[in-house]
Design a protein around this nucleic acid. Structure first.
Length: 730
DNA sequence: ATGTGGGTGATTTTT
DNA sequence: TCACCCACAT
């Protein structure tokens, strides 16, 4: 690659600087990804072997996209570059090296809910109450410690440690012991264990130091201490390390990200070369200026001045509405209006919010307006019960030591509950073996004997199932194995018998899991069950998000990092929601929320709409909301500020130059929604969003609690509370 | 051991 | 609003 087209001077300089440490501070929309891809392509074309390059990204999706872009520039070599998230790269390295630190290559990865469950179990074992503190609070503190690289054997109980701390310090070591016993690692261990490995085995460290001659880290502002430590260790031999980030877009401090890593880098690699990408190619001037007016209220930031050569653009719009419903309607209307007035498609719109709970009204309203949408986030696919159930079978198969997975499976069996599980657990403890071993020993003793209780039959069944699959595991592809296993466990059959819509959805999810396995096998060189489980544990919703559908996108501001859309809506600009506040916020927390605002606003290329509602449904009841304090930090003179009148049914009036009052009577539901619930009488034919058409059989109760028995065509008889059912009549 | 019914408390954000 | 937990029944 002799010439670098489409790059400005600063980008080019950053791309061509290959040897020695460098830091690229890249403002929003300044072509950061382009620089990274060109940089890697440049290395490849100058003779560097692909496997000598380690590129660490924040999401799998980013890695995948970068890979395919590099492929276009540098060809197939791109495939062999070590590119992925910290977690997936080191999970992979750990599989090769785990035996050195007491794990085996088929170790299980625990997600957050697994970790929480394990914590609960540990607390119970230690005779601690799980009411106060709750396992959730304890594990989150353990995670804070782990993120700071404070290990379970380095805890010091100071004089001033309170009882909560004492509990955490008691649980933490036991939690780690249990993980080790289960041959399992949690998310943090995937970063900590490589460090421990490298510390104890300098020769192994050296092997990887030599291998990775060039190291690149994306989204550097969101790395935590463990991640910093790893990269530092790996880079210290060749020192060809390049970190790319933007301190203004650091939004994961709550998860242990340390902006300080930027300064640590400067300290540990004092000869680093600094590049600043300050030209924004994405947004209009007006959009940038709003983003800038928020972020400039932050004290702690690296000085840079983002500018754009783009036009001024349309004014940014701020909408006030009476209710969250109105807000959602207004967004829908605006989308339809924009589509008809400019040549835009549904896919050009992005709706952002602070918390996933806010998506609900928006979804309802979009559906009402027949606007197609895709939702990113929320209940994650791999966290659904039925999926976790299937995965638990696979986990046991791959790693029989995983007690937690086995117990999950055990409880799925007919006739086996807490009692049996407790017995098995204590038997395992007594023999200091795994539950799996106890199970196997048990059936070895019992097999052939006649009289069996229901419980024994269940145990026997399960154990022989695992034994059988263990023997044939090597002979079948992951897809075949799982398909047959699902078949044999009867999960699908069970769901089919249930016959409800929910069960049907679950079945579909399991089908989707199966196609997921097939897809994994197709794209992977040596597909294995371990590999699949690893991948599954580390994917996120944003990874699987495809922008091929022509639909409006909904997601949290956090998920939107790195994306861009022609038109962006930021909804719910209300104090308590955005900024999201619990107790009085610290300066630090407030600054992080501002950075989040900055990230959200800079997703927009051409148009930015912001909105807030005066009233919003929260926790099932109406709450009065106060508009976000961030709005007071913006210079409103250049913003189009639109609010509804306090009295309805009046004409539009102009007040001042920038405030316009409008009326949104057309925003209330005109779609035959039952406002007066009394309409629902015996014999009435009604429609429900999910269940479709139904006939009212019986009505009972008064006021809020008024209920109806309705016979639906799809699922039969159902009892619904009218207040929530949202029925309509056609 | 499992199903139900009512009371309750919860919302950040994610690898 | 809803999901989860506990108590109670079966």
């Amino acid at each position: 690659m002799n010439h670098l087209p489409d790059l400005n001077e600063e980008q080019k300089a950053a791309v061509e600087y290959s040897y020695g440490p460098s830091m690229i501070i890249a403002g929003a929309g300044s072509g950061k990804t382009r620089v990274l891809t060109y940089k890697i392509a440049h290395l490849l074309s100058s003779g560097v072997r692909p496997y000598e390059i380690l590129a660490l990204t924040f999401t799998n999706k980013a890695a995948g996209e970068m890979k395919s872009r590099i492929m276009k520039l540098a060809g197939r070599d791109a495939n062999d570059v070590w590119m992925g998230t910290f977690h997936s790269i080191f999970a992979r390295i750990l599989r090769a090296e785990a035996h050195n630190i007491g794990f085996s290559r088929n170790y299980t990865i625990y997600d957050d809910s697994d970790s929480e469950k394990l914590t609960e179990s540990v607390m119970k074992d230690l005779g601690l109450s799980t009411d106060n503190p709750k396992p959730k609070a304890v594990i989150s503190h353990i995670k804070i410690l782990k993120n700071k690289l404070i290990l379970h054997d380095q805890l010091t109980d100071g004089n001033n440690s309170n009882s909560f701390q004492k509990i955490v310090h008691k649980v933490y070591p036991e939690y780690q012991t249990r993980l080790l016993k289960n041959n399992a690692m949690d998310f943090d261990d995937l970063l900590i264990n490589p460090i421990l490995l490298f510390r104890s085995y300098p020769d192994i460290l050296e092997k990887y130091q030599r291998r990775f001659r060039f190291i690149l880290v994306d989204e550097y502002q969101d790395t935590n201490l463990a991640q910093y430590e790893i990269t530092k260790m790996l880079a210290s031999l060749h020192r060809n390390i390049s970190v790319v980030g933007d301190d203004a877009q650091s939004i994961y401090r709550w998860r242990g990200a340390e902006i300080e890593n930027i300064f640590s880098f400067q300290r540990d690699f004092p000869d680093y070369k600094l590049f600043k990408l300050e030209r924004n190619y994405r947004s209009t001037k007006k959009i940038l200026s709003v983003a800038d007016s928020i972020i400039s209220n932050n004290r702690r930031q690296i000085r840079k001045s983002l500018f754009t050569e783009r036009e001024d653009g349309e004014r940014v719009v701020l909408n006030e509405t009476l209710t969250d419903r109105d807000e959602a309607h207004l967004i829908s209307k605006t989308i339809l209006k924009e589509i008809s007035s400019r040549k835009l498609n549904f896919r050009d719109f992005l709706i952002l919010y602070r918390t996933n709970a806010q998506s609900r009204v928006l979804e309802d309203t979009l559906r009402l307006n027949h606007i197609p949408y895709v939702l990113v986030g929320g209940v994650k696919f791999y966290e659904r019960k039925e999926i976790k159930d299937v995965l638990a079978y696979l986990k046991v198969l791959v790693n029989p030591k995983d007690d937690e997975a086995l117990i999950r499976v055990l409880k799925l069996q007919d006739g086996i509950g807490d009692g049996t599980v407790d017995k098995l657990r204590s038997a395992a403890k007594e023999h200091s073996s795994s539950v799996y071993d106890v199970l196997i020993r048990f059936i070895n003793e019992r097999e052939g004997k006649q009289k069996r209780t229901r419980i024994e039959a269940g145990l026997l069944n399960l154990a022989s199932l695992f034994r059988k699959y263990h023997e044939v595991m090597a002979e079948f592809s992951p897809g075949e194995l799982v398909r047959s296993l699902i078949d044999e466990t009867g999960i699908i059959r069970q769901l089919r018998n249930e016959g409800t819509i929910e069960a049907n959805e679950r079945m579909n999810n399991i089908q989707e899991l199966l196609s997921g396995i097939t897809e994994y096998s197709d794209k992977t060189d040596n597909p294995s069950l371990e590999g699949f489980l690893q991948e599954v544990s580390l994917v996120t919703d944003i990874d699987t998000y495809e922008d091929s559908k022509n639909a409006v996108t909904l997601m949290t501001m956090h998920s939107s990092k790195g994306l861009e859309f022609p038109v962006v809506f930021i909804a719910g600009l209300e104090d308590g929601i955005f900024p999201l506040l619990n107790s009085p916020p610290t300066q630090e927390e407030l600054e992080e929320e501002r950075r989040l605002f900055y990230v959200a606003a800079t997703r927009a290329k051409d148009r930015l709409y912001m909105s807030y509602a005066l009233q919003r449904y929260r926790f099932g009841s109406f709450c009065y909301q106060i508009r976000s304090r961030f709005l007071d930090e913006i210079d409103l003179s250049d913003i189009e500020f639109i609010r509804p009148s306090t009295q309805r049914n009046k004409v539009v009036q102009e007040v001042g130059s920038s405030i316009r009052y409008e009326y949104f009577n057309d925003l209330t539901d005109t779609n035959d929604h039952i406002v007066d619930k009394q309409i629902v009488r015996k014999g009435a034919v009604v429609f429900h969003e999910k269940f479709g058409r139904g006939t009212v059989i019986e009505v009972s109760g008064k006021g809020e609690r008024r209920k109806a028995q309705i016979y639906f065509d799809t699922i039969g008889l159902k009892s619904l509370v009218l207040k929530y059912a949202n029925l309509s009549i056609k």
